[in-house]
């Protein structure tokens, strides 16, 4: 990759800048969902191997983040939300970020192959490739449905962890993948509704810029209407027990209500002031419904996976009459 964004360094870079390249907030979500996938799997690996599996998945996700930042530096430099990232800020060059991402990718896939099995390592390699190449290099700049397809990369960690523990895949890990996959569009489109001008400035074809705010609000509602019952499905297959059933039903209901509020609002229409704000949650009055859904969507995913983790990792599982034992 050529270093087209070569800018004088603001200060010498240190390890914190390389850690920031790995998108720590995304990495923490990946660690959490992967841990849940590992705990929910019917086979429990040795605790040391389990820790190595989680570490490998986290580093793999971080490596994909570094490759994304290397490729998207031109876009990141334009957007208020991302202009302080290490590459556009001139702290790490694009070549350094790309090299770091590639090396970390190799380390993570090799470690997972050694600690678990070829299926898990192959899935992790596919996830990194999908995020760095399919999403970052192709979909992101080509279609307003970029995050729908690209969301697969963020959805796979629980299945990778499940495969690491069992050596196979099945309906239950695929349900976990589907939940995150269907959660991703309303989550990002809610944000895009009040940050649309920022994306437009960068030339990223997000749904609100291409199809308009009304179409985006409708799409958010459609995906949320699918997500709410889908979130409860693990309680039907027996993966989730009573705690999971109650949590996913309640949180799914709130998610759907907030999506309905977004659909009825005028969120995303002429949100100039919001785009100027670097803060993720700062909005103008008309966009509050979208901001609320964005904020709750993070809590939703946390609650649903935390319930599953509590049941399988901390012995709180009590089977529902619909599903068998886990």
């Amino acid at each position: 990759m050529t270093d087209t964004l070569a800018t004088p360094r603001a200060r010498p870079s240190d390890w914190r800048d390389y850690f920031a390249l790995m998108k720590p907030r995304v990495m923490s979500l990946v660690v959490f969902t992967a841990w849940t996938g590992l705990a929910a799997a019917p086979a429990a690996p040795n605790p040391l191997l389990a820790a190595a599996v989680i570490l490998a998945i986290a580093v793999g996700a971080g490596a994909a983040g570094a490759l994304n930042m290397a490729y998207d530096a031109d876009i990141d430099a334009v957007m208020r939300r991302t202009c302080a990232r290490p590459v556009p800020a001139g702290l790490v060059s694009r070549d350094e970020a790309a090299t770091f991402g590639l090396v970390m990718s190799l380390f993570s896939v090799m470690t997972l192959g050694l600690a678990a099995n070829a299926l898990a390592a192959g899935l992790l390699a596919f996830t990194i490739f999908f995020y760095a190449v399919v999403y970052s290099m192709w979909l992101k700049r080509a279609t307003p449905h970029n995050i729908v397809v690209g969301g697969l990369a963020g959805a796979l960690p629980p299945a990778i962890a499940w495969a690491a523990a069992t050596g196979t895949l099945g309906l239950d890990p695929l349900l976990l993948v589907l939940i995150i996959f269907m959660w991703t569009p309303p989550h990002f489109w809610a944000l895009a509704l009040y940050k649309a001008p920022d994306y437009e400035k960068a030339g990223v074809p997000m749904l609100p810029n291409v199809k308009g705010a009304k179409a985006t609000r409708t799409q958010i509602l459609i995906y949320s209407a699918i997500l709410a019952p889908l979130g409860v499905a693990p309680a039907v297959t027996g993966l989730g027990g009573w705690l999971y059933a109650a949590t996913s039903a309640g949180a799914g209901g709130v998610f759907l209500l907030l999506a309905l509020r977004v659909a009825r609002s005028r969120a995303g229409e002429a949100g100039e002031t919001a785009a100027d704000a670097a803060d993720l949650y700062e909005v103008r009055k008309g966009d509050k419904a979208a901001r609320d859904l964005f904020a709750f969507s993070i809590l939703y995913l946390f609650l649903v996976f935390a319930a599953l983790l509590a049941e399988h990792g901390f012995g709180l599982y009590a089977a529902t009459p619909f599903g068998g034992g886990a």
Binding site: L49, L55, L114
Partner: peptide, 10 residues
Amino acid sequence: LLVFVITLVR
């Protein structure tokens, strides 16, 4: 160290 520990456990 990680590779060493993983190898020992396996």
